[in-house]
Design a protein around this nucleic acid. Structure first.
Lengths: 226, 226
DNA sequence: GGCCAAGTGGAGGGGGTCGTCCACTTACCG
DNA sequence: CGGTAAGTGGACGACCCCCTCCACTTGGCC
């Protein structure tokens, strides 16, 4: 296993105090802002006005800008927990003795987060090369994923022509579901994942496994005229 | 077959001249604006500034607003051709003696359009109830689709637990790919569609059919930290 | 050619977001 | 307790987008 890039004690960016030795009130406000950001981004999309986040946090805009000079910094900080969680899922998958099961569980978890915590997709998918050890983390993820896939394929659980890029493909597809209300998006994601995973298998059973329930999607506005 | 709602000779909205008996220059400008709209929407998303569309069309904003008072009117008008095309695909699918093949071809075509003409998803998916015979067209699409599916299932080409709502599910998923550059999005859509369609089948062959080539997706920004 | 309704462009008021600046407040240390 | 630097809020100028209004131009019919 490649050494994970240490993350939580995040490399100091060079300027500004590390956020855990801020003054007490400042740290409190920082937390509030992050929570507000998650809520606002979830409710109104990732380009909701900064002032809305500040208002929701009960804080002046200046405070917000002082802590998070750019929108993307706020975004990444707001979803740092989810990112860390994903890393744990990843670890778990790598440790699973059944690689296929591990992969499925990993995807299931990530997809759920993707669809539940709106705005997280922006952070997960459109990598911000600004992040310090972006390259390192990415290489790490890439290598780990490749290994997971190789193991699953060697175990005869993935079809020969499965490509590693099918993972981002799947993630991107799930992202498309996130525009729906969460009650719809979650079952939709599960069903999509199941469909796809059944297709990923090397030797599908004669009768395919059961599907999770269909989401309440109608063809809203499939206004095909003639 | 349900009578198609007549569309092209569009019911006059009540106010304003039908757009084919505008003055010659006005009609020319209208066309220019629509083309500009498609280009601008494709390049900068569906909420690019109206003024940008006007500028690109070499036309004043007033002209644009006179012809298309609201953004959604511009949007629907801009993609009217694509919408009509989809309706034709639909007809073709309904007429296909092999319902499974018809369904696949339909989806393949629609997905291609969805991924090629950016902004079209907004029109296709988020139905604008403003459209005059919105309800009628929608009911028509719904009934036709249901019939197509029923035929395919009766022919033993779709698994029992396939749900009609799996179609919007698929379309939504493809929409998620449209954020990628077209060169990537198109092969991605094809591959996704193939995967899904293989899963939709009632009796998948022991070794699944071949896949279209994998798109050049890397896990850009899958910056899973640890 | 000449008339005039249809068509046009661009200026500008209203509204909203961004990000900074500065006078004020407050936590923490001695 | 008092000093001081860290922290704060909200006003403000710059910018951008929306959409309307009106003085000007132009196509088409007689």
């Amino acid at each position: 296993m490649p050494a994970q890039p240490s993350h939580k004690p995040s490399g100091n960016t060079g300027q500004g105090p590390r956020h855990d030795d801020l003054r007490a009130d400042a740290r409190r406000n920082r937390e509030r802002v992050l929570e507000a950001a998650r809520e606002v981004f979830a409710a109104h999309g990732t380009d909701a006005p900064m002032s809305a986040v500040a208002r929701r946090a009960g804080v002046g805009v200046a405070t917000l800008y002082r802590r998070f000079p750019t929108r993307t910094e706020l975004l990444t900080a707001a979803f740092d927990d989810q990112l860390a969680e994903c890393a744990v899922f990843f670890e778990t998958a790598l440790a699973d003795p059944d690689p296929g099961h591990g992969l499925y569980t990993l995807l299931e978890k990530v997809c759920t987060t993707l669809v539940t915590d709106r705005g997280f997709d922006t952070v997960l998918m459109t990598g911000f090369p600004g992040a310090l050890d972006y390259d390192r983390e990415r290489a790490w993820a890439e290598e780990g994923l490749a290994r997971l896939i190789r193991r699953a394929r060697d175990a005869g659980q993935l079809r020969e022509d499965f490509a590693p890029s099918d993972i981002p493909l799947l993630l991107l597809a799930v992202t498309g579901l996130a525009s729906q209300p969460p009650d719809t998006a979650l079952p939709a994601a599960r069903r999509l994942l199941t469909y796809l995973f059944q297709s990923f298998q090397a030797h599908p059973p004669a009768t395919p496994g059961p599907l999770p329930p269909a989401p309440p999607l109608d063809l809203t506005g499939l206004n095909l005229p003639a």
